[in-house]
Amino acid sequence: MGSRPEESVVKGKESGVDFFGQAVATRDAYGAALLDLGTRNECVVVLDADLSGSTKTAKFAKAFPERFFNMGIAEQDMMATAGGLSLVGKIPFASTFAVFASGRAWDQIRQTICYSNLNVKIVATHAGITVGEDGASHQALEDMALMRAIPHMTVITPCDGFETKQVIDAIAEYDGPVYVRLGRAKVPSVMPAGYRFQIGKAYKFHIGRDANIIANGIMVSEALKAKEMLLQKGMDVGVINMPTIKPLDTEALLEAASNSKLIVTAEEHSIVGGLGSAVAEFLSENHPVSIKRIGTKDTFGGSGKPEELLKIHGLTAEEIVKTVMTNV
């Protein structure tokens, strides 16, 4: 086992547009990243379905009105129109809330975008239960499952503003359909200085001997907290940030599974079909170890404060600690 990487949680450091060290909502980082991208790449066009203020595409819309298309409350039309724009050489970014992006327009994404392997970037915000007060109708807990099932699709869930900015830059360079899952609420800065996101690459904060936690999105910071709490109890627990759930970084998974007998996955998504399922599918076939999945348990969300909802659904560092302690 390699040496422990340098301490990773850096806070309070301002460094402008890359969001390094800043606690921001990933949707805010997206809005800024998109504006920056639009300045550098004339092929980038943006579509939204009447939620540009919330998805933060409004920044791009204001700067580049001729390259922004508000499609009204019509997500199916938006996705297929994005497909058409890609067919004449544009790089369309289509945004709305994750429930509508992945659910309402699933057939358009499957048939038009993925079957034809079109260069469309779907960046969905307001994923997961941290949507909060709007309740279950607006909380996508199945979107990664829906998107992961479609051939040609790449699925990414960044964990903080710094990573989000890099994800947006990376997918603009990649040719093919991509689904990016972002949140509404402010999240802590997690990724260390010098981190460089690559599609399909996990980031190993640490590989542990007792257990390894595979997390993405907001659960990465919880996993890092859990790791420290478990260290107090004398346990060596690793944390891997797996922003790309398709394609999975299987090398990182094999390394984690080779070093500990317990793998815990943590995601702000249903345990059905998301990161936990993807990890379990791969490891059960290639390196069977004990796997426990933390996520919502085949249930809808509800109204409430994000922190209340996270607690009710067991999406906390404490729950990760408990899961590790009882299963290790």
Partner: peptide, 26 residues
């Protein structure tokens, strides 16, 4: 130009092409 078969999607795709062509003054 594009795979079709699931009905109702082609006009949206055509719109996207038309929007893009106009942007490029093609």
């Amino acid at each position: 130009e594009v795979s079709t078969g699931s009905l109702g999607q082609g006009l949206s795709i055509a719109n996207g092409m038309a929007l893009g062509l106009k942007l490029d003054r093609n």
